[in-house]
Each structure stands twice: as structure tokens, then as C-alpha cells.
Amino acid sequence: MKKHSTKIYAWLYCLPAFTLIGVIVLFPILYTGYISLTNMNLYHWQDYTFVGADNYIRALVKVDSGFLSALATTLLWTAVNMILDVAIAYLLAVGLNVEGLRARRIYKTLLVFPWAMPAYVSILVWRVGMFNTEFGLLNRFLTALGFDKMDFLSRNVPAFLSCMTLNLWMSLPYMIVMIDGGLQSIDRSMYESAILDGANPWQKNWYITIPSLKKIMAPIIIMTTFTMFKQFDILYLLTMQKGAVSGSTLQTIITYAHQNAFVSNNYGLSSAVSMVIFVFIIVFSLWTNRAARTERSEQ
């Protein structure tokens, strides 16, 4: 009797949350899956018909649909950003923990600033204050040094590098704080015995610091990889705002799906792309889950 009643309570407490999530998150995803099988677009808003897997074939097989190049850009973007993010944050965090660095609290507080700023404000601020051809600080530097002005966002490669710089500026503080927290949790005595054994700083980093950080950092690195993969705001706000398209044709898969839905009104194709992305995410998270589990069972 008692067991029965706790079960009812459990579902009762979950009900409001599940209803909300069901309507706002789960149903739209299923609906997106449904739309992906139709030819819904601006001309077929109500009288759309089923086209089966046509949208998927168009996205995945036809090279000129742009999806495959967007996918390549996304993978390159995620990989380059992750490597630089972790490497630079690691160097800075190790630097911050050098013994005798008295001003480290001040540095830490100042370095956190880009993290605390609202993301879209930072992006718009960079667009206006840094990359802008007329007033941007970067172009002022260039002209002051005698170079020609440069439109950072009009061609693909400079646009990619500009977006990357901004992304690193925004994401490094979080990574520094996390690695810094990890560094402080490492047992000091390990270093002392390493010094007694005559290890140099490089060896200490390689054989003590990095292996100890691995465990603590794994979930954070996986989460950050998701965030980088999903990054939409930077590319969208810098290069493809309505009425202010900068000229570069750079697309990640997320901006590609968004453009197809809200600019070219090709809802079927956009939804198909969304579902493909969702499958990627499911596979990736299952894979990381399994990797984490096997690592845990090995210990």
C-alpha cells in the first residue's frame, strides 16, 4: 500500500515539469521530424505533401546543397577551437599558479570579465568596436601602422579566424577557472617527491599535472565541445544578420538549418538537417557516456 502511494507521489511531483518539457521541448522535436518528411515551404504552408526521404537525400547526397561543406566547417571549427581553448587555458592557469605570483587574485578577477558579459553584447561589441571597417579598433591599429583597412568579415578565411578569436575570447575565462580549480585539487606532496627525484618543471607538468587533471576535466571538456559544436550566435551576429550580411559564405550546420528555415523558408530541408544534427548529438553523447563508463570500471 505504502509503496503504491509513493509511486503516485513521484509522478505527481514530476507531472508539471514533464508536461512543460513535453510541450516545449519534446513535441517540437517530434514535429520537426514530421516536417522533415514533407515539402513544407512558403508556398506549401498548409497544403504540403509527404516526400519521404527526399529532404535527407538532398542534404546528405547532393554536394551543392551546402550541408556537407557546412558540416566540414563545423567539425573544423569545433576541433580548432577546442584545442586552442584547452591549450591556452592550461598555459594561463599554470602561469597563474606559479609560486610567488602575488597579484594572481587581481588577474583572475579581471580575466573573468569576458565570461560575465552577456554573450550577445560581447559579440555585438566586437562587431562594432573591433571588426568594424570604419571605427573598429583593429582597423585603427592597421591604419596607424600604415596598412590598408581590412574588412575582416567579408571573406571566408578571415571571417573564420575572426569568429574564432572572438569565440576564444569568450570561452577562455570559463576554461581557465575550471583548470585552475582542478590544479588546486592536485595533491602537493606529489610535486615534492618529484622534486626529490630530480624532475624538471616540464616533467612535472607531463607526468603529474596533466594526468591528474584528466579525470577532473573530462566532463567539462565534453560539455565545452558540445557548446562549441552548437555555437550559433557568433557567426550569425557577425556575418549574417538580416540586412547586414557581411559577404562571407561561411556556414556551420546550425546556421545552415536556421537560414533554411527563416531566410529561404525551406522548412522541409531545414528540418531534415536538424534531425541529422540531432542524430549526431545522440551518437556523440552515447559514445562519451560509454567511454566514461568503461574508464570508471577500469579503475
Binding site: 521541448v25 550559433f232 546550425i254 528555415a261 522548412y267 528540418s271 544534427i277
Partner: peptide, 28 residues
């Protein structure tokens, strides 16, 4: 509470959270 489907529900929630909401914006 312990109830059937608890762990599955937690995992499902995590997966749903990984889906970028921008992608279902049109459906919403």
C-alpha cells in the same frame, strides 16, 4: 523516490537538453 523508468527519464532529459533549441524554433 524510486520508480520505474527513473534512470531512463534522466537520460532522456539529458539528450533533450543536448538538442539545440534553435533547430526546433520553426516547429515551436
Amino acid at each position: 523516490f524510486r520508480f520505474r523508468g527513473k534512470n531512463a527519464a534522466m537520460q532522456l532529459l539529458l539528450l533533450l537538453n543536448a538538442f539545440p533549441q534553435i533547430l526546433s524554433m520553426f516547429a515551436i
